[in-house]
Amino acid sequence: METLFNIVVFPGMFYVLAWTVLLFWFFRKFMAALHKRVGPSFNGPAGSYQTLFDLSKLLTKESITPDGVNPYLFSIMPLLAVIVATLPTAFIPWTPDVYVIPTQYGVLALVVLIGIEPFLLFLTGFGSNNKYSFLGGIRILTQMISMETAFFLAALSPALLFGTMSLGEIVEQSSWLSFLILFPGFILYFIALLGLLEQPPFNIPDAEQEIVYGFYTEYSGTNYFLLKLAEFAEFMAVFAGAATLFLGAYKGIFFDGYIFFFLKMLLIAIVMMTIRASTPRITMKQMLNFSWSYLVPLSLLNMAWVLMAKHFILGVGL
């Protein structure tokens, strides 16, 4: 019974869907404020039904499969993308009690599941039989290979500090001091996160003005909805990863609870949106240069710093 609840309601399908709708609406409203616009405002309180209507519209619209593509590859990829993007939720300690798979290898599971996603998206671009989609697929692959290195190295620094791969234990051991030690790692994680989630200045794979909509170009209707759902589920996985690894997950100021987890994720979303509203896109070459000449070396330095801090500040033997 509890497993069923976990799968269907929290932190399973319903939770992911609710999060997607809420985040989508929040992105629109927050972006509108930064743009000095109003944003959706007619349907429901502060236009909140708009997103629900969008969702139902996309679900019911015809899903067009272009000529000359492999229909199985074309349609199965969005489904796979959603499943893979949703899986990390099972490994994250959302509250002290809801922790579906309390494994010793939580960090690894998180990192691997987030890491598979781009390859699925590459295959969507590859299977679309469209020049722009293909370029988008190539771009996402290039970007992921360079950004994930830094992302993984940064994500491993808490595991290194606390000497465990279990996300539950990392959260329990975290403190203000550990937050300070891990802060450089958090910054690196955040920058790599922008690249991973294709957010400005790294929104290169689906650069609208250059290659139309990248790997999304040929998708419509339900398939498009699934891809968008996967994108927002991925947002959640990566935000939750940041909150768990660096910010102490559900730990609060006076009491512990899911609300703090939520607020921490929201904080990351707000910072991400503010960057999005003020930063133009850079090019592929600049991204590669930035990633391999600065981000990856800094991530390696960060690991050295974490080890030194562990030894000299926390006084734990190596």
């Binding site: 930064l34 743009h35 000095k36 400005p200 003005q209 509203a277 133009p280």
Partner: peptide
């Protein structure tokens, strides 16, 4: 100019 680089904020502000 900025829309071409994927940033719509300045377009919106100027429109205002």
């Amino acid at each position: 100019f900025y829309n071409a680089m994927g940033l719509h904020t300045v377009g919106m502000w100027n429109m205002d």
